[in-house]
Design a protein around this nucleic acid. Sequence first.
DNA 1: ACAAAAGTGTTGACGTTACACCCATGA
DNA 2: TCATGGGTGTAACGTCAACACTTTTGT
Lengths: 227, 227
Amino acid sequence: MNTNHTSRVSTESHAVALTADCAIFGFSGDALRVLLVRRAVEPFKGYWVLPGGAMQPHETLEDTATHLLSNLVNVENVPIHQVGTYSSLTRHPVRRVVTTTYFALVSPEDHDPIAREYLDKVMWCPMNKLPDLGYDHKTLLADAYEALKEELRQQPLAFHLLPDSFTLKEAQEVYESILDEELDRRNFRRKILSYDFLINTEEKKPGVKGGPELYRVDDAKLEEHLQ
Amino acid sequence: MNTNHTSRVSTESHAVALTADCAIFGFSGDALRVLLVRRAVEPFKGYWVLPGGAMQPHETLEDTATHLLSNLVNVENVPIHQVGTYSSLTRHPVRRVVTTTYFALVSPEDHDPIAREYLDKVMWCPMNKLPDLGYDHKTLLADAYEALKEELRQQPLAFHLLPDSFTLKEAQEVYESILDEELDRRNFRRKILSYDFLINTEEKKPGVKGGPELYRVDDAKLEEHLQ
DNA sequence: ACAAAAGTGTTGACGTTACACCCATGA
DNA sequence: TCATGGGTGTAACGTCAACACTTTTGT
């Protein structure tokens, strides 16, 4: 049996397609959404799936995922996070497809995604109104969502979703939408401010009762917290 | 550009080899070790690497990793944990190899690994005396080791390394060797016992000063703690 | 003035760390 | 008997959740 390390060199490739699927999460003031695309052809014609693409010879899986982001939502320099690799024999009905899942977090308004080629629709779907998904993408998305929440709990990776200056209330709403749970206003405030990457602009947001203070991020210090 | 999800079906495979590399960690009373194999042929002839193998057409990556375990250390039914997938263009000097890394935790005495085919040596290498590794396996191993420690901190996955009955001291030594840090005897005791999957056999281990009590695991209850 | 939202501080529960004593065993 | 290791309890600490009051602003 060829199970030693060298066998990789002598083994032919078996028509296995390697793809990257990406759970692109978006937040724009209301609820957390994920970008879904609808297939216009078989298999799974008419089904919504996560956007994905085959890894090209000259690119890494991270490149593939990054290209999805720039093509679909026109964002650059948004960090992607690897979730896992799925190699079940039955996950694709036609051929063997091994996929690595990534997630990213963007502001949907950056770009209005357009359908193309084998897809006839694109939508920002609220996470609490997901349709049936094709392939095993229900699992992929669930895993990616868990990974997103876990990441957010451990590091402040959602501040690029906020405008240049924002209130703590707005920051809290981002957190609550992503984590899908309510947070205590005062505890959230204390925790976030203890990270010391928020700067009080000494200005107040007009037109809002209470006169909330506006904050902006110290990008350099924020970077330190993103491991 | 073929970046939509359907393109995976129409894209030819590009002679990309998909492999599973496995960091097989072993513990047998002294230090934490990892199973390394030495390559007898180029590339990286003479270098130690993690055991790995090409994914076969009929198997998943988990199957590939599982086969490594049964072939090299003759263990079955040991859980494997996916660490990550590495697709850098330069990680293999000869051809394109994308690898998914797994780790497993076994008792080395289960089997004395033998060299075969393109490998001329196999060893259980203490984690604190690692040689230079071929390919990018230094990175793979470091990531796998971090994943192992993280897993152990969150769930008790090391009790299958212990004999049927054991003292808390022995259990603590397993933890300390894996985590590479010293633990407080009383705190460790309280924490482990609070999980309530350990049963005091009411017997004492003979030949040891202090007369330590022997424990055994309640397999059913332990399962509940492994998520 | 009044309602709604923002700013602030305190308390208790919990988990973790640090540490000291007594008891059991082998030499 | 004595040295070594095992069994047990407790105080200090930090983190986090829960909560009430005052201040600011819009209507």
